[in-house]
């Protein structure tokens, strides 16, 4: 039985791969040329003077991970759909360094297909955020949405754990303990190490694994699934109760647009949270609550009755 199941799985997977491949095959062939260099740690080219093969290291910042590229949101593109075709030649012509890049709204703005994402609203929120190009010279959406790998998770039903890991990795690309080199390009001032700016938060590692940075740092917007208004740190959530309570805000950020019934599971009030996390104060079980109240009541009642009898007998004894 297990063998048959494995076979079906294997065939299904192979078919899926072929299907994927078919969609991309044309692009994959076109992109192969670019990825032969940009997808490798070591690239090589032929020296036109003597015909010898030269091997060099591809600088980290110019690498494109082809596996991530083909699972990303923009996997249907050829490299030269976004980059000018002149990149075909190597060494790349100098003036290409000044190629203007598309912005998200160049393609997605005013397009009904993407209305549900509210790109324009996201852009407004971004312009008001701490990362806006007005405050940080040269910061664009691409800084968080890596053009060659980014994907969306929350809307596509990815598990909460994976979504948190992905979304936090986006922030931590720049905001990790010591701060990345990118910060040299963008930052006006040096930020504190993460463990210092969050020293008030116990179980830091756990929190960074189980809760998204934007939960504390970005204000929700009614029509957006993912908050984009990252505000100055002094207005970030610092109150534990925002999350650690029955009316935890995690519910509204995780489960917006999902049906509410989903929330009740085996008596757990905030049931949906349970598969992924245990949040003190938020994960509560009604059945256990009621049981414990009953048991508590019975104990106190028993004690009360016993005490009353003792008092009564004592009095009687004293009268005798």
């Amino acid at each position: 039985m297990k063998k048959v199941l494995n076979l079906i799985l294997f065939l299904g997977f192979t078919f899926w791969c072929f299907a994927q491949d078919h969609v991309n095959s044309e692009n994959r062939i076109a992109n192969r040329h670019c990825l032969d260099c940009h997808g490798q740690r070591v690239y090589s080219f032929v020296n036109p003077d003597d015909g010898s093969t030269v091997r060099k290291l591809m600088p980290v910042d110019f690498r494109v991970d082809s596996a991530l590229f083909y699972t990303g949101a923009h996997h249907i593109f050829k490299c030269v759909d976004c980059h000018v075709p002149e990149y075909d030649s190597f060494p790349h012509p100098n003036q290409l360094r000044f190629e203007p890049m598309y912005a998200c709204l160049d393609c997605h703005g005013g397009d009904d297909t993407y209305a549900k994402y509210h790109f324009e609203t996201i852009d407004e929120q971004f312009q008001k955020s701490v990362h806006s190009p007005e405050t940080l010279n040269g910061f664009t959406c691409w800084n968080c949405h890596d053009p060659h790998s980014f994907r969306i998770n929350q809307r596509t039903g990815e598990s909460i754990a994976n979504t948190i890991a992905y979304d936090n990795a986006v922030c931590m690309k720049c905001h990790f303990e010591t701060g990345s080199e990118v910060m040299l390009l963008l930052a006006n001032e040096k930020l504190k190490p993460m463990s210092v700016s969050h020293d008030w938060l116990p179980n830091q590692e756990l929190h960074f694994r189980q809760v998204r940075c934007i939960e504390c740092h970005a204000a929700m917007h009614d029509s957006l699934l993912v908050a984009h208004l990252v505000s100055p740190a002094d207005s970030a959530v610092k109150q534990c109760k925002e999350c650690h309570s029955r009316n935890t805000m995690l519910l509204s950020s995780w489960y917006r647009f999902q049906n509410i019934e989903n929330r009740n599971k085996n008596g757990f009030v905030n049931g949906v949270l349970l598969n992924e996390a245990y949040v003190i104060g938020a994960s509560r079980n009604e059945i256990l609550n009621i049981l414990s109240l009953i048991l508590f009541g019975l104990t106190l009642g028993g004690i009360l009755v016993h005490a009353l009898f003792r008092l009564k007998m004592n009095k009687r004894k004293r009268h005798e």
């Binding site: 109150q239 009316n247 003190i280």
Partner: peptide
Amino acid sequence: SMQYSDIDFPLVRFDLAVTGHN
């Protein structure tokens, strides 16, 4: 106070409760 932490009826402030409990 942690288990029944509530925005409207704070018994002990959450972070103090966590530290105290630890």
